[in-house]
Each structure stands twice: as structure tokens, then as C-alpha cells.
Design a binder for these strands. Structure first.
Lengths: 182, 182
DNA sequence: CCGAGCATGTAACCTGTTACATGATTCG
DNA sequence: CGAATCATGTAACAGGTTACATGCTCGG
């Protein structure tokens, strides 16, 4: 069973607990935001496809809350497909970094452009870093016998160190190009 | 004049010297490979659009080599548009990192998957790092009165430190998850 | 009752890649 | 002369976002 890239996050999240499309979106924007995103326009069609492929199945609607919410759970075939997908070599998307492209050609704009961009990028990175650290606290505070925590912290630690390194680079760049501006 | 994202690299490169579509592609795969890419299917149509918008103009074909090569140069309006584009705040694309998504859900696959992926990623990062350093040598060895070099080295230094940091993280991860595998 | 958030879905659009078609030139 | 590379281009497709349409439910 071949698994589409845009379906993998769904299956992954459904290993946690059964969820609806809306809940999945919230979870993606919460837990996966740092390295993944998915739009409703992609999510709902994918949900239908996964259902048809029997990798997920719909739960019967809750009697108590007669909401029109559709809750899905992962099937055994789904878990199988997910495991297969996880094990295969990850493909890297063609690079497209707008900030770096602008900085690369920034000699056309002068040192001020570099200063402005790196200052702004630094601000955003700081926000990101604070968010990362808050998540880390959260994970560490929940029961440590959660086996998944180890894996989550591993990905987090990459995000934190990359962001810290980026901030450091912003500082250096800022130094170098504000001298030039004077 | 609003500049399309996929056209900006063309204008940027044409500030170096007049080039044909084919040469632009080569230059993108050479100098910009670490943060940018462009396919022919995008490049040639964009070239036509930029030409029609008078941001670039075709050079008369060389008499000596009667090749069917079409060489373009950037116009004043093109330089203007490029400067404007460089100065505007860069947008960041929605994140999509397949490796991190797999590692995040790797508790489904076990420690071996983590080990395999980080080992492989480390290999690729090492190759990248060597390439980065070779480029740095090259830039530093060309005449230092090239004003652009300062900008190029700035973007390079980010690439190098991010890659080094990534390799370091791979080592840590490898350590942690090979212990688990035993 | 009304607005915010819950909830599902679709159609139009944009961007970008892949695969293909075509032909010239250079070098061994 | 044949293969590799130079060189330009297009059509089909895949992937993804945005904007819209629709309606429910809960709290104030």
C-alpha cells in the first residue's frame, strides 16, 4: 500500500486517538506546526481517500452529542502503511528560501536591506524559540512513561538548536552590516 | 512593477551578466542550489513574460557563433523591479519536512528507523558541508575587490553553520537511539 | 438572539515538475 | 558518424492554497 505524502500526517496523528478532520487540523497546527502544515482543501479529500482505501474507518456518531462531526480511527492496514512510510527514505523537496535569495542578491539593495531583513528574521526566530521551549516544558511535564516523548523531544531539540544557531547568525550579520551602513 | 517569485532569481542572475535560459539554469544549479531551484518548464515561460514586461531584453544574436541561443540582459526597469523585490519582506513557505515528520512519528517504527534515517541524513549533510566549503574557498580566492563576495559569504556562512549544527544533532540522536536498539 | 468557533466540504486557481518534442553543435 | 551536451520550448499532470458555501452549537 503506497501512502501519499499529504496523508501520512493524518495516519500519524490517528495513532494517538480517533479524530475528526477539524481536530486533525488543530493538532497539525499545534503539534506539527514546526515542520508540517496541511490545509482543509487537502485534508478532507484525503480523509475520504484513506477511508475508501480502508486505512482509516469512520466511528459511529456519538449518541450523546448529536453533532455532525465525523470521527475516524486508524485501521490495522493503516498502521501497516504508516510503518512502511516511516521506514522509507525521506525525500527532500527542492530548496526555495526567499530570505536567502534576497540576501544573496542584496548587493543590489545595499547593507540596509540586509540589516532590515536579518533584524526582522531574528524577531521571528525568537518567537519561534520561545514557542519551542514552551512545548518542551509541556512534554517534559507530562508523564515521563509516555514512550513517545523521547521521539518528540528529539525533533524538538533539532528545532531549538537550529533556531538558536539562526539567531546567532542574525546577530553576526547584523553586526557586520550595520558597521557598513555607517 | 510587481515581481513574481519565480522570476526574481532570473533578474538577480542577469545583474551579473547577460545570459540565455540554458545558462541561467546552469547558474541556478551551481550558485543558487543551496537555497533555490528552478525547472525549465518554469524558466522559459518566465523569460518570455519578463521580456514582454520589458524587465529584460534580448541581445542580438552573435554573428560569429550562429547558434540559436537567445541571450537576455536586464533592463533599467528590471533592476528597479529587482531592487523593490529584494527590499520587501520575504514570505516564508508553509513548512514541510518529511524527515522530521517521520522522526516525530518514529515511535511507530522503533529506534532502528531513527538510527537509519539520521545516519543517512548525516551522510548527505557531510557532502553538503564539503560542497559549501569548496564554494567558500572559491569565493575567497577570487579578487577580494568583488563587492558582492561579502553578500555571498554571508549566506554561505548560514548554510555552513546550519549544516554543522545538523550534523551535530545527527550524532547526538545516533548515540541516543543506538543505545536503545541494543 | 447573535457572534464566535465548530465542522465539513468544493471549485477555482496557482505554482511547479515531469515528460516529451525538436533540433544544433561539438568532440572523439 | 554517433553520443553527449547545448538549447528552446510545450503539454499534461500533481500538489497545494484560497475563497467560498453551508450549517450547527454554545456562551453571553
Amino acid at each position: 500500500m503506497l501512502l501519499k505524502l499529504s496523508s501520512s500526517s493524518i495516519l500519524g496523528l490517528l495513532t494517538w486517538r480517533p479524530m475528526s478532520g477539524y481536530e486533525l487540523k488543530r493538532e497539525i497546527e499545534g503539534s506539527l506546526q514546526n515542520f508540517w502544515s496541511e490545509s482543509f482543501g487537502q485534508l478532507y479529500p484525503n480523509l475520504h481517500m484513506l477511508n475508501q482505501a480502508h486505512l482509516i474507518s469512520g466511528l459511529p456518531p456519538d449518541e450523546a452529542t448529536k453533532r455532525q462531526k465525523k470521527v475516524y480511527q486508524i485501521t490495522d492496514a493503516g498502521r501497516e502503511a504508516l510503518r512502511g512510510w516511516i521506514a522509507t527514505d525521506p525525500a527532500s523537496r527542492p530548496p526555495r528560501d526567499e530570505l536567502l535569495l534576497k540576501l544573496f542578491f542584496a548587493s543590489e539593495g545595499g547593507p540596509d536591506v540586509v540589516r532590515d531583513h536579518s533584524r526582522h528574521a531574528r524577531e521571528k526566530a525568537l518567537v519561534k524559540l520561545r514557542r519551542y521551549k514552551a512545548i518542551r516544558e509541556q512534554i517534559q511535564s507530562l508523564n515521563s512513561h509516555q514512550e513517545r516523548a523521547k521521539y518528540w523531544l528529539m525533533t524538538l531539540s533539532l528545532g531549538i538548536s537550529q533556531t538558536q544557531n539562526f539567531i546567532h547568525w542574525c546577530d553576526e550579520t547584523l553586526d557586520e552590516f550595520t558597521e557598513l551602513g555607517r
